[in-house]
Design a protein around this nucleic acid. Structure first.
Length: 587
DNA sequence: TTAGGGTTAG
């Protein structure tokens, strides 16, 4: 009797120690516990063995966990689940976790909700949708699909595999959801580009009284970055401070990105300064990418040096960002230097994205033949963006031969993209090849190809106002057009002349001028001037590249109104101030 | 004693 009490007490002390070591991930303590277990002859005890497997798993000692598991003469369901968990949490092979699941069933141990949610974790990592569907079917059959962990893991995998419809169906049908379920669904939406749905879910979670944890906040901030909604982004920034998530690296990096994508590079840098001491390369990458987006190449390069002085090694993302910065400012030599540094010093393999940046850098620098050679010799198939970049460069530098090669590739890859036909026609027009221009126009008409309609939007007091070229639907349209007419009169006094050179609309000159005058960004800036108090910058987003005429218009407008104007087009940001643009005419 | 979630490129 006394012996039993002593035995149980010792056992419980040892179990407590095992738990402590697992919690603190102490492998030294864990090994000492294991030695003690062998000394007292408890290595066959199932509970003790399970705890040892768990401990080794938490210490990332998967081989030791596997050895212990294989040595067990009798295994419980928890033994199998813990071993599967060890494999899924330690980046081990997905196949092994699945094999164990099959093996445990063969050996007569039915799986439970713990088993399925663990194995699903691995499917998410590998984007294995077929396996996920099978596990989904298994869980329905075993009546565990309504379990919160299983449901959350399932929706996470479906979202990771881009099956957002399945993910949201599971979310809607779950009888019980917790914070992890909500944040998984938000992450699923934002990663698949469903930004509005992400924010809607975030608001619903708020209404449900759920605590705003950093997981939810980082997804919601990313959604604001995607939508470029500054007001809501700022509100989330305040929420992150209030809820104690302000210094969380995921929240901080998404805030840096959000501010940069909303045109507020200074605010992005302020967030970065507050967290730059935290050891995370993502924070540096987010800031460098922000500078690149705004064509602040010198700042991006300084930060690139600074990060290395602080002991960070640039990774693939860092290099995409610095190369982009070089591309936006036409810095060919610097771009080449970074590309070589990436390969030689940091031993990184350039991806298709890095080659894409280099094609852009070479083309923009006028080295279109070198750009083409690079496309020909790189170890990847060229993407449509590469051919598009080459075609755009050929237009600027008047190379018809290469323009036709690039265009033919694009026509094959994107047969319905009218922009490519227009770009080629513009190359012919610039070289006065009027027969070819006519042929390209005919092709556009015959195939009924239409260019994406230019749309610009501006956020005024938490409301997005959107304008398309020649907009008629906005309630204040008459006032906007009248104000725009007045502004054009004023700008003409500053030598503004409508530039129709780069416009290929199949219309006469006077109509061309009218269409240009009513480009969406001009309507948005006029509305911004009408609504926003003087002194604060005006931020406009556009779905296409800003045209040459609008670029001149914005420069003069910034001078005439003494306002800072920030325009985001598909490519980058333009900061207009005192009659100049930050891009220095390079875009 | 065992399970599920987030950030930066494009």
């Amino acid at each position: 009797m006394v012996e039993n009490v002593v035995h149980e007490e010792r056992m419980s002390n040892l179990h407590y120690l095992l738990q402590l070591c697992a919690k603190t991930r102490s492998s030294v303590g864990g090994r000492a516990c294991h030695a003690q277990i062998i000394r007292v002859g408890w290595e066959m005890d199932v509970l003790t063995s399970n705890m040892l497997i768990n401990l080794y798993s938490k210490c990332s000692l998967v081989d030791s966990a596997r050895k212990k598991f294989n040595e067990m003469p009798v295994k419980s369901l928890v033994s199998w689940n813990t071993m599967i968990g060890a494999l899924t949490q330690n980046d081990e092979d997905q196949e092994e976790a699945l094999t164990l699941l099959i093996q445990m069933q063969r050996e007569g141990t039915p799986f439970n909700e713990f088993t399925i949610s663990s194995v699903l974790c691995k499917c998410a990592f590998k984007c294995a949708i077929l396996e996920c569907m099978q596990l989904h079917a298994f869980s329905i059959k075993a009546a565990i699909d309504s379990n919160c962990f299983v449901g959350t893991a399932l929706l996470h995998v479906y979202a990771k595999c881009s099956s957002i419809k399945y993910a949201s169906q599971i979310f809607d049908s779950m009888p019980e959801r917790n914070a992890v379920t909500w944040s998984s669904m938000m992450a699923g939406y934002v990663q698949n580009g469903f930004h509005e749905e992400t924010l809607l879910l975030f608001h619903n979670a708020q209404l449900m009284g759920l605590e705003q944890d950093p997981f939810m906040i980082s997804s919601a901030v990313s959604a604001c970055a995607g939508l470029a909604t500054l007001v809501e982004g700022k509100q989330l920034h305040a929420i992150s401070h209030k809820s104690g998530s302000g210094s969380n690296i995921y929240v901080s990096s998404s805030l840096i990105d959000m501010y940069a994508k909303c045109g507020c590079i200074r605010e992005a840098y302020l967030v970065f300064q507050g967290v730059m001491e935290v050891r995370s390369i993502v924070l540096w990458n987010a800031m460098i990418s922000g500078f690149a987006r705004h064509a602040y190449a010198p700042e991006a390069m300084v930060l690139f040096e600074k990060m290395q002085q602080r002991g960070f090694f640039p990774d693939e993302v860092t290099y995409v960002s610095v190369l982009n910065a070089c591309s936006h400012m036409g810095l060919y030599e610097e771009g080449q230097k970074y590309f070589d540094l990436m390969v030689r010093q940091h031993k990184l393999s350039p991806s298709v994205l890095h080659y894409s940046c280099m094609v852009d850098i070479l083309g923009r620098a006028g080295l279109v033949h070198k750009a083409y050679e690079l496309i020909e010799r790189m170890p990847f198939y060229a993407t449509s963006s590469m051919w598009g970049s080459l075609l755009a460069s050929c237009r600027v530098y008047g190379n018809i031969e290469l323009a036709e090669i690039a265009a033919n590739h694009l026509f094959e890859m994107e047969p319905n993209n009218a922009g490519n036909h227009i770009l080629l026609a513009n190359v012919y027009a610039a070289n006065k090849k009027w027969d070819e221009v006519a042929r390209a126009r005919k092709l556009l008409r015959e195939n009924d190809l239409k260019k994406e309609r230019g749309t610009s939007w501006i956020e005024i007091r938490n409301k997005i106002h959107s304008f398309t070229v020649g907009e008629r639907n906005h309630p204040q349209m008459d006032e906007i057009y009248a104000k725009l007419d007045d502004l054009v009169v004023e700008l003409k006094k500053l030598n503004y002349k409508v530039d129709t050179d780069n416009d290929l609309h199949d219309v006469e000159e006077s109509r061309k001028q009218m269409l240009l005058r009513h480009h969406s960004e001009k309507l948005a800036i006029t509305f911004g001037l009408m609504c926003l108090p003087s002194g604060i910058p005006i931020r406009i987003m556009k779905n296409l590249r800003i045209c040459g005429d609008c670029h001149i218009f914005m420069k003069l407008m910034s001078k005439f109104t003494s306002r800072e104007i920030i325009v985001r087009d598909t490519n980058r940001f333009h900061h207009f101030k005192d009659g100049f643009c930050s891009c220095r005419e390079f875009w």
